[in-house]
Simulated scan of single mutants.
Amino acid sequence: MKNLVYPIKFSPILKEKIWGGEKLKSLLNKKSNSTDVGESWEISDVEGEPSIVANGALKGKTLKNLLETYKEDLMGVQNYRIFKNKFPLLIKFIDAKEDLSIQLHPNDELAAKRHNSFGKTEMWYVMQADENSNLIIGFKDKITPGNYLEHLENKTLPEILNTERVKAGDTFFIEVGRVHAIGAGVMLAEIQQTSDITYRVYDWERVDAAGNERELHTELALDAIDFEMEDNFKVSYEKTPNESNEMVSCPYFTTQFLEITETLSKTNIHDSFLIYMCVEGEAEITVNGISETLQTGETVLLPAATEDYQITSKQAKLLEVYV
């Protein structure tokens, strides 16, 4: 176990997207020659897309290797009992140069039945937003499935969707079944269940270089949409410096906001791994005498077997995540 307990970094998995841009390279220092990098998968156990350790004694091992070798010491006793050798979260940074498609995600029951997958509850923390940038979340008013389909057929779906003007620090909780889209000009951190199942319902009539439209999932989406959902998606949270401030707590993950201006001595009180995403500034995390610098746009995993550790910074904002 000695080899396991240190601040583990993984090599980012960069994803080119039709809507992606260059902020992940220019603002978060991700290495790519592409001009349309839409996502950086920071910690992934998605089938065929495993994260690979980039530092320390475990360098070169996959996250799956770590799960199979260290089990509860990596995950926590209860988490390992539930998830076995499947890591429950997918951690990303996203840059939308153009509007993403209007989409939603199925719940656990539907995802298991149709795709042998988890559902996809997620949250967003806006890191940077161009002037007048928006997110689309939910409908303006309650509507019926028939009314929704009518707008879909007439290509007027955006008319009935709710838009939210955003700025850095804004946080949103996206439950399964809620229609949503990241708007052009927004860069954010995303924390979600491990799932790559997305139902795309409207794509702005975009075509690719060959003139083809992307696939839509109208039928699959219809019984996955929650038409009754309340407008409780924007998250308000405290920002007390040098303390963990709860942002989102749901059955799938808890995320806390941590602004650091000094050295904090912390103890892992959870039966869980801890993930730190640096969303602003720079911090140093030390475990068992091993230190790693965490810069804006970097992510680190502390195994569940971690006990005491220190975080030091003159000025940094971190998202602290556990299950």
Score class of each variant (00 low, 15 high):
A189S: 08
K314A: 06
F139N: 09
D196G: 06
E243L: 09
A168C: 08
L104Y: 01
D203Q: 02
S26W: 06
L63E: 05
I13V: 05
E22T: 13
K9A: 01
G297K: 04
D226S: 08
Q256V: 07
K25F: 08
E298Y: 01
G185P: 12
G289H: 00
L264W: 02
E230L: 14
D73C: 04
L4I: 12
T293I: 13
I191Q: 06
N107G: 07
A304N: 09
M277R: 04
T306L: 04
M1W: 03
Y202Q: 10
D36G: 04
A210P: 04
T240V: 11
Y322T: 11
G211I: 09
M123C: 01
A184N: 12
S236A: 13
E49Y: 15
D196M: 05
N162C: 14
A181G: 03
V166H: 07
V126N: 00
P50E: 14
E205D: 15
T299D: 01
N55K: 03
Q78E: 15
V126P: 07
E190P: 00
T144S: 15
F172M: 00
I43K: 11
S244L: 15
A129D: 12
A210K: 13
E68F: 11
G183K: 00
N132Q: 15
I174V: 11
R214S: 13
G211R: 08
E219M: 11
N242F: 02
K71Q: 14
P106G: 03
K97W: 13
I160F: 00
N288H: 00
Y6G: 05
E109A: 09
L104N: 02
E16N: 14
C250M: 11
L274H: 07
L152D: 10
F83S: 00
L149K: 12
Y6R: 10
K31V: 10
R165D: 14
W41P: 01
R200G: 03
G76V: 04
Y148D: 10
I182M: 07
E98D: 15
E213M: 14
K239Y: 10
L188Q: 07
T198N: 00
W204D: 10
D45L: 11
